[in-house]
């Protein structure tokens, strides 16, 4: 059907772009790889020293420790936020570029296939379950807030530490990441045709739409905040750094 203009370089990475188009996908690939490695090591392999004083690593929130489960308790939780992120409309676009070179960047040639199936065939059809993962993500947001509030109370005493600030910021950023979700935007009102017939839903949709414009920013900020929170709590638990706080009792490693 189409006969693209052929002149000059063709095939992988062919482009007339003169700017540093490869920087963004390279960054995405680097950060996602680093986060993937770190979260595997931290949540799956390092099975101790993730809860110290009033601080519980967000990887483990809420902490589930059934007797029959032989692996890290984080695995019971992590599938949901990771699944939510893996099926996220923003991350999909980003990692299809960074990892699948499909395309490497806009107007840069990458993987080509005349029978390209996109997300119409398994396993990519899973992407369309994003809205169900959203439900779990929203539930986790509740637990993360509970965890954040609990982080202000240690040994029956209200107080504040750097850890509580980090966990609160993390709960907020993760909530905003969920609240700016494309699927949520659809559910709260986007599916309607007549807005004036449903004024409350329209108002909610307006709010979510506003947040949705920064979905990409929420996605990255919350990714970093989770990693930072986990690293921070482990460093404190290992006694490598000490948490500045208002409590009289020193923080004790719980798990």
């Amino acid at each position: 059907m189409s006969h693209p203009v052929t002149l000059g370089k063709q095939g992988f990475f062919a482009t007339l772009r003169k700017d540093a188009w490869w920087v963004e996908p390279a960054l995405v690939a680097g950060i996602l790889t680093a986060f993937g490695l770190y979260s595997t090591i931290s949540a799956v392999l390092l099975r101790t020293k993730f809860e110290v004083g009033p601080y519980l690593s967000p990887f483990y929130e809420p902490l589930l420790t059934p007797n029959w489960w032989p692996f890290s308790p984080a695995i019971l939780i992590l599938w949901a936020p990771l699944g939510f992120r893996a099926t996220c409309y923003y991350y999909r676009g980003a990692y299809y570029k960074a990892f699948f070179l499909n395309p490497p960047a806009c107007s840069v040639t990458g993987y080509t296939n005349k029978n390209f199936r996109g997300e119409t065939k398994f396993p990519f059809t899973i992407m369309n379950l994003h809205r169900f993962l959203l439900i779990f993500a929203l539930a986790l947001n509740v637990f993360l807030w509970i965890g954040a509030i609990k982080s202000f109370r240690y040994e029956g005493e209200w107080g504040i530490g750097l850890g509580s600030v980090i966990l609160t910021a993390n709960a907020f950023l993760l909530m905003m990441y969920s609240f700016s979700c494309h699927s949520l935007r659809h559910i709260v009102g986007g599916r309607l045709d007549c807005f004036s017939c449903h004024r409350t839903q329209k108002a909610t949709w307006d709010k979510v739409s506003g947040w949705n414009e920064s979905h990409k920013q929420w996605a990255w900020m919350s990714l970093f905040s989770v990693a930072i929170a986990d690293i921070y709590i482990r460093l404190v638990a290992h006694g490598i750094i000490s948490d500045p706080n208002t409590w009289s009792t020193p923080l004790r490693v719980i798990h």
């Binding site: 409309y89 999909r92 676009g93 299809y96 570029k97 499909n102 395309p103 806009c106 107007s107 390209f116 199936r117 996109g118 997300e119 119409t120 059809t125 369309n128």
Partner: peptide, 11 residues
Amino acid sequence: AGVFLCNITKC
């Protein structure tokens, strides 16, 4: 229209 062929790269 193949809406699911789109992999949302936003180009």
